[in-house]
């Protein structure tokens, strides 16, 4: 790595590390996994920095990588879980391990921790697009316009995704509360 590249990469890292980590942790809901995916995001940023054409802002580009890497990680984890479930069917003891532990986001105020844990569990069950729109809006605080650029959708599509995400969450919460 050249010194110039190293410096600019460090600047990019310093500017976006927390934004990337916060986005990723909302998807993967586990600190160790979030660190692993954050590493993958910045390795991808370093690898693809030459091909970044500046058509979108750097922030949009990095958010897009973070969202894609998080979704890929979740897919791979779900595949592993399904495989583990199938193999467990044939285990001698037949014990199936499920990950029922609640996720407590470190940035949530103490009084909201319990409610936020319920919400994160239900966010996990949303379809990918609704999940992304909801996380970018409610956790990252991005505007409709910024979300539409990250997701490469129109503003109205983002608005409708957020409405549907809230409706779905409400239905899911009604069943458990």
């Amino acid at each position: 790595m050249h010194t110039e590249q190293l410096l600019s990469f460090q600047e990019i890292y310093d500017t976006y590390k927390n934004k990337v980590f916060n986005t990723v942790i909302s998807y993967v809901q586990n600190t160790e996994d979030a660190e692993e995916v954050t590493q993958d995001v910045f390795i991808e940023v370093h690898r693809s920095s030459g091909s970044f054409q500046g058509k979108s802002s750097l922030s949009t580009w990095i958010y897009r990588i973070a969202v894609n890497k998080s979704l890929d990680h979740l897919k791979s984890k779900n595949r592993k879980k399904r495989f583990a479930f199938l193999t467990a069917l044939f285990d001698e003891d037949g014990a199936v391990k499920h990950d029922h532990s609640d996720f407590h986001h470190p940035g949530i105020a103490l009084e909201n921790k319990e409610n936020a844990a319920i919400l994160f569990r239900k966010i996990n069950e949303l379809p990918e697009n609704q999940k992304t729109a909801f996380i970018l809006s409610k956790v990252e605080g991005l505007s409709y316009h910024e979300i539409s650029e990250v997701m490469q959708l129109s503003n109205s599509s983002v608005e409708s995704l957020l409405v549907r995400a809230k409706q779905n969450l409400r239905i899911k919460l009604e069943k458990i509360l």
Partner: peptide, 12 residues
């Protein structure tokens, strides 16, 4: 529950 993410802080 739906509003529990309000005021969420950025994590280091």
């Amino acid at each position: 529950v739906l509003n529990s993410l309000e005021g969420i802080k950025s994590t280091e």
